[in-house]
Amino acid sequence: MAALNPNMRRTLGLSVSAGQALRLFADLPAPLQATDLDTIDYLVIRDVIGDQAEEDYYAVLVASSAAARLERIGLVSEVDLYRSDPYLIARALTSLDILSGGRAGLLALGEPQGKQDVGYANTTLDASFVAEFFEVIGKLWNSWEKGALARRWEENLYLERSLLREANHKGAHFAVRGSLPTPRAVQDRPVLLVTDHPLHASVRTQAAAVVSERPPQQGRWIQRLNAASFATGAADTGAIGQLIDVPVTITDWRAFVLFVKGLTPGALTDASSKPQQLGELFGPTRVETHREQEAHHG
């Protein structure tokens, strides 16, 4: 595990299912302000996959809805990469990053759920699949270079095509030309989090962080634990931060605010010192972006 930078403050996130998030924020009269949320840095919204369950909630869309109601904190959506298309996920994550002002991130689903054969040509799941998925997101991320959105009327130039980067990815699982149809995100790099699931083995050192209960063998560790353990001081100082499950007994926004206010993370400071962008909490994701790919190969 990477050593903790002593100058880096320890982060605190909350994990909530997409269904619970919907119920928590549905009746909010106005967006929750940063001061109501100043003990936490980000929210992980877990995908609720309803193949066999009573509920199904697509976390990315719930996160986007929540982004409009929560000020300043990061929004990390859990995504079922195994049954997704990297181009669509890169487009969605970029869009949420733009709308939220640089607060968007992704947590890769660990254990596959439900029927895997939903219509893709290749449904082989191994660690190389997840690694290649991340690779494609990296190559598509900010494929609009700065200045691509030119808006130079005198030249009749809305867009400068020479500043659009193609991904030109060809791998075992995906072939993706690019560019994204979505303008540049706020964050320079995608914020990609993983778990200690074996399918994530190849991307832990690249990921922004590894979310797990126990220290992972590689990568920056975010310790996942329940609220009771956190309250009794079970937080491990070897982690770069903690991710606490919001108890299912919390079912409305008032109770949520009280819960958030009651958290007392030692190393945390007030809202004014929070970074503007989610990625600053964790240190950089080390997937190569298109520019680095070009430098590497070119």
């Binding site: 924020f25 809805s65 982004a67 867009l159 095509r161």
Partner: peptide
């Protein structure tokens, strides 16, 4: 023929992500 047209408005966000955001407001 020369690539992405440069002269007019081009580029969009994901519509479901954008509209989920707006529906909240």
């Amino acid at each position: 023929e020369k690539g992405v047209p440069e002269f007019r408005v081009m580029g969009r966000l994901d519509n479901l992500v954008t509209q989920s955001y707006l529906a909240s407001l």
